[in-house]
């Protein structure tokens, strides 16, 4: 097998209709394969395949097991940080929802050891964003970049990134960057409660249907070339009980049809099949605002293009204030701050 075939086999591993052929890895391919497993966050899946005797190649098995020890140590640290952040937010009376890997490792992976992740993602209500940043500051976290202008975070930011003990905390106001993120109604994600248990503590998260919508947004808009584990997330979420009627209504309300259709297409191309709920979404949803997807597909200047597209979906005072914040941020070094903004992702 070429190492690209190997990565593809791991992407599809243990999903319904996936091949059960052995995954044969040449010794010479191991370095490139390990780089790709890291990039696509498939080390946990690969380790599960090794444990079940599905991988052939002693050097590859050994490399996967060693790397798995490392990424699981990191994921466990991040899980405990997520728990700590949630505890602090609850103490401060701030509603919140755990997003992405730290939640999905417990919700959809066969075992949490199959799903690595690299940061803590927490959704907080827009009006609580400033208080949430302060609450994380109480723990010792420091934001990576200053706020562009007072009020920008709670009105326009996708997220505020903070660092604590060498780990990253993303406080999300919405679930996507750019115009699609601006059209999301984040309050919708606080309606239905769900929880995951992290080290003995219940931490609030999205319900499965909302996780699926978020996972689709992430696949479609998070990066021009999606990470394989995020494609798996969509399939794994879609393989469970999904309220497709509510998902369709939510996506329409957020004008997210084009984003979700793109995600479903990417999943279909990569995995080769779709669970039934994804087929329903594909058939029920229109093509939507496909013009808005374009700005997400740029490389280096992606953020600038997204900012321009965001301006087009904002109206009235919001459009003026957003343009001011982007064009004339507060602070002593506007050039540096704009440069920092343009490098955000």
């Amino acid at each position: 097998m070429s190492w690209l075939d190997v990565v593809s086999a791991f992407t599809q591993f243990d999903l319904a209709q996936a091949s059960d052929r052995p995954i044969v890895i040449d010794d010479a391919d191991v370095p490139a394969m390990m780089r790709d497993l890291d990039r696509h966050r498939l080390v946990g899946v690969a380790a599960a395949a090794v444990e079940r005797g599905r991988v052939e190649g002693a050097i590859a098995c050994s490399a996967i097991a060693a790397r798995h020890d490392e990424v699981m140590a990191s994921s466990a640290r991040i899980e405990l940080l997520a728990r700590r952040c949630s505890t602090r937010l609850a103490e401060a009376g701030i509603d919140h929802r755990l997003l992405k890997g730290a939640a999905l490792a417990h919700l959809v992976a066969s075992d949490s050891s199959e799903r690595e992740y690299r940061d803590v993602d927490l959704l907080v209500p827009s009006e609580s964003m400033d208080a949430a940043v302060d609450a994380m500051g109480d723990l010792g976290a420091r934001r990576r970049r200053p706020e562009l202008r007072p009020g920008f975070d709670r009105r326009f930011a996708k997220s505020v990134t903070m660092r604590l003990d060498g780990l990253e905390i993303d406080l999300h106001r919405t679930i996507a960057p750019g115009p699609f993120g601006a059209l999301v109604k984040p309050g919708d994600l606080f309606v239905l409660p769900a929880a995951v248990r992290l080290a003995g503590r219940q931490v609030p998260t999205l319900d499965r249907t909302d996780h699926l919508v978020h996972a689709c947004y992430h696949v479609a808009l998070g990066s021009p070339t999606p990470v394989a584990t995020n494609l798996r997330d969509v399939v794994l979420l879609g393989s469970g009980a999904i309220d497709t009627e509510r998902a369709v209504a939510t996506i329409r309300r957020w004008q997210g049809e084009a984003a979700v259709q793109r995600a479903i297409r990417l999943v279909d191309e990569s995995i080769g099949w779709l669970p039934a709920p994804l087929g329903v979404l594909r058939d029920e949803l229109d093509a939507g605002r496909t013009d808005m997807v374009e700005c997400y597909l740029h490389g280096d200047d992606r953020f600038a293009e997204m900012a321009k597209a965001t301006l087009r979906v904002l109206t009235g005072r919001d459009r003026i204030d957003y343009a001011l914040a982007i064009g004339l941020p507060d602070g002593t070094s506007a050039v540096d701050r704009v440069r920092g903004l343009l490098s955000r992702e």
């Binding site: 380790a47 090794v50 444990e51 996967i64 097991a65 798995h68 020890d69 699981m72 140590a73 994921s75 466990a76 640290r77 899980e79 405990l80 728990r83 075992d111 949490s112 050891s113 992290l198 080290a199 003995g200 503590r201």
Partner: peptide, 8 residues
């Protein structure tokens, strides 16, 4: 209370 991960 602890985070747990099964290793190989």
């Amino acid at each position: 209370n602890a985070a747990e991960r099964r290793l190989t």
